[in-house]
């Protein structure tokens, strides 16, 4: 009968499942670090066919959470771990070790048809605070500003909140978008929009603004002159065992190939600063 068959299937599931010993690495966390993690994992899987690496991009906070719960091996984070998360990790017997994989700048974007080409940090803050609501007030056309922010679970948001907003709260009318790609797309399709994304997400369809007169480029980020920049992290539980796949993966960014990948995606390799 039905359930007999079912129990046999269930049993065989368990039996076979327990016999599996395939190497697998789970990566979870920031959407900003996501492209690096995806490119690294694809590169790595091609070199080592026996390894299965899964990448989720659910936000830095979620990455930390998964690492603490032991549901992932590498937590991508676009900010450093908070004290609270660190304490929780230690309580759970997890010892997070940070690996700085790349540097990133947060570029403030507008639509290319927008005549504004540069703002100061204060002006950007005013826009997101809702005190400046029209491009006219900044010397632009008479258009209502559509402010686009990253979701509050992203490290990009937290870095922006810290470096630009001074931890002041954004206006309620700010729209939230779940990812860097999404934020860029909104700006690209909305002439009056302003948004911010990681350096790797700039392309020809949007116009990155000069902030305090400095253009966001690899050069200005690596020299530290661009005001909104930050390191990107991968966290592991303890330092990974030398020679293991995990170790090779989190140190890939130090190898020439890894650095080429990072540069090709649009981030700044750590060795260049």
């Amino acid at each position: 009968m039905n359930w007999k068959l079912l129990s046999i299937i269930g049993l065989s599931f368990v039996l076979i499942g327990s016999a599996v010993a395939d190497e697998r690495i789970a990566i979870d966390g920031s959407t900003t670090v996501g492209p690096i993690a995806k490119a690294f994992s694809e590169y790595y899987m091609e070199q080592n066919p026996g390894v299965n690496i899964t990448v989720s991009e659910s936000g830095s906070g979620n990455g930390a959470k998964s690492l603490i719960n032991g549901t992932c091996d590498i937590a991508d984070m676009s900010r450093f771990m908070k004290d609270k998360e660190f304490n929780a990790a230690v309580e759970a017997g997890v010892f997070p070790v940070a690996h700085v994989v790349a540097m990133d700048g947060i570029a403030v974007l507008v639509h290319p048809s927008n005549p504004i080409s540069g703002l100061s940090v204060e002006q950007v803050r005013d826009i997101y605070l809702g005190t400046v609501t029209n491009w006219k007030e900044l010397g632009g056309p008479n258009k209502k500003i559509i402010a686009i922010s990253r979701d509050t679970n992203s490290g990009t948001y937290e870095t922006f909140a810290k470096l630009v907003m001074n931890k002041q709260k954004m206006a309620a009318s700010v729209e939230y978008v779940g990812s860097n790609g999404g934020a860029r797309q909104r700006v690209q399709t909305t002439p009056a929009a302003i948004g911010y994304v990681g350096l790797g997400f700039i392309d020809h369809t949007v116009k990155p603004l000069k902030i305090n007169g400095i253009e966001p480029t690899m050069l200005t980020v690596s020299s530290g002159t661009y005001p909104i920049s930050r390191p990107l992290f991968m966290f592991t539980n303890g330092y990974p065992e030398l020679g293991g796949h995990l170790h090779a993966l989190v140190t890939l960014h130090l190898s020439p190939n890894g650095q080429e990948i990072i540069e090709a995606i649009g981030f700044v390799p750590v060795t260049s600063y």
Binding site: I16, E42, I53, V55
Partner: peptide, 11 residues
């Protein structure tokens, strides 16, 4: 997840 290998049945 957003990236992963095709799974085998028991996986």
């Amino acid at each position: 997840v957003s990236v992963g290998q095709p799974l085998k049945f028991w996986e």
